[in-house]
């Protein structure tokens, strides 16, 4: 798994932190179970979700493989299988299973996966503030006015019906926009994976990396913005 740790400077500390079995105090080489006493070991707090599943830090994931790995690890960690074990082992199994479930939920969803990767990788782009593109912003402002007018109108009147037709069309347009964003995000994710696979350490590669992360952040934040508007709209027009 080491080759995938190009950016994880904490990986050495991580192994140091859990290099000893809590039970028999022996040096551990096993990943989740001590090789000597076979006791379950807590997943370190520093272990990221990709590492947890033995995956490289890439945004394209084979969901079938992820699921298979999740099921396999659930069989290893689920509290159901620790009923006859010591209290310490039960606590570890509970904690590990909870971490595993969160990790799976995060990586399974492409949006959450990208957001999580951003959190891990952000560094220099962490504090970039994003605001919606001005055309989108104006569109939304106009939409809000229509929504207000619709709320105030008699919904059975001609005006009410016209406003509703407009809102339905707006929702379709926004849905389309959200899909376009997701498509764009997918493209960036592919670019990101390709850049990682090349593994270059040039300044050019670093610039490219930051550019991709920044784009990712922008799209994710705009997508959330549009998603919330669409949800509000759906709540209003049903």
């Amino acid at each position: 798994m080491d080759q995938h740790h190009t950016h994880n400077t904490g990986s050495r500390d991580l192994r140091m932190a859990r290099s000893m079995c809590w039970h028999c105090q022996s040096e551990m080489s096993g990943e989740y179970f001590c090789e000597r006493c076979v006791k379950v070991q807590p997943v370190s707090k520093e272990t990221d979700y990709f590492t947890c599943f033995g995956l490289p830090r890439r945004l394209t994931i084979d969901l079938k493989k992820l699921e298979a790995k999740f099921y396999e690890m659930s069989r290893a960690f689920h509290p159901d299988f620790y009923q006859n074990k010591s209290e310490t082992e039960q606590t570890i199994s509970l904690g590990n299973a909870a971490t595993l479930n969160t990790a799976y939920r995060t990586l399974r969803d492409p949006i959450q996966r990208a957001e999580y990767l951003l959190d891990l990788e952000a560094g220099s782009v962490k504090d970039i503030r994003t605001s919606p593109p001005s055309d989108l912003f104006e569109e939304i402002l106009e939409l809000q006015e229509t929504v207000e007018a619709y709320r105030a109108s008699d919904r059975t009147s001609e005006t009410g019906r016209q406003l509703l037709t407009r809102l339905v069309a707006e929702r379709q347009a926004l849905d389309q926009r959200k899909q376009d964003m997701e498509h764009h995000l997918q493209q960036i994710c592919t670019d990101w994976d390709a850049l990682q696979d090349r593994g270059e350490a040039t300044s050019q590669a670093r610039t490219e990396r930051d550019r991709l992360l920044k784009q990712m952040r922008e799209i994710l934040s705009n997508r959330t913005y549009v998603k919330n508007i669409v949800n509000d709209l759906a709540a209003t027009i049903g």
Binding site: Y71, S74, R75, H78, D80, F81, Q83, N84
Partner: peptide, 16 residues
């Protein structure tokens, strides 16, 4: 069945 899983009898089934 769940009781049997907990007591270690059934090992091939797991409920998530």
């Amino acid at each position: 069945v769940q009781a049997d899983i907990l007591s270690g009898g059934t090992t091939d089934m797991l409920l998530l």
